[in-house]
Amino acid sequence: MKLSNKSKVLEQEEMTFAERIYLPAIVGGMATTLKHFFSKKVTIRYPEQKRYLGPVFRGHHILKRDEEGAERCTACGLCAVACPAEAISMVAEERKKGEENLYREEKYASVYEINMLRCIFCGLCEEACPKQAIYLQHDKMVPVFEDRSEVIFGKDKLVEKMDNRYLREGWK
C-alpha cells in the first residue's frame, strides 16, 4: 500500500533512431536558444533604470512634520519598544515656551537615532507610532553609506524637509 498514488513508474525505452543520432534534438534546441537571442531582455539596468516599487514599499525612514511644520514626534518610545532589531534610540526633552511652532506636543525628541545596519525595514515602528510621526517612505531607498561612522542616522537626516514634503499616494 502506497501513501499516495502520485508516484509514477518510469519506463525507459530504447532511444529511437532520431534520438540516437542526436541531431534533430540539437537543431530543435538551437532554434529555442535563437528565439531567445532575439527576444526582449528582462534586465533592468539598475542605477539608470528603476523598477516601480509599489505603494507599500518600505524604504528610507522619515520623521513627519504636521501641516504647520511642527515635528509630530513626542518621544514616547513606542517605536523603540516595537522595533525587533532594536535599531531606534531617542532622548526626550520638554518643550520650552516659544517653541510651539517647532514641536507639536509638549514633549519632543531632542535626539532620534536609527542604526541603519540594524534596521530590517519591517515597518513595525510605523504601526506602533500613535502620532503618525515615523514612516518608511515608499519611493526612497536609504542613501548609500561607506563607513561605519555614517551608519547611525540622526535627526538631521530623518526629519522631513519643509521644501520636500513626503506624501503617500493614498493621502493626496
Binding site: 536558444t33 535563437l34 537571442f37 527576444s39 531582455k41 534586465t43
Partner: peptide, 9 residues
C-alpha cells in the same frame, strides 16, 4: 551571446 540567449543583456 550567453546573456542574450538567457534573456539578459
Amino acid at each position: 551571446i550567453a546573456a542574450f540567449m538567457q534573456d539578459r543583456v
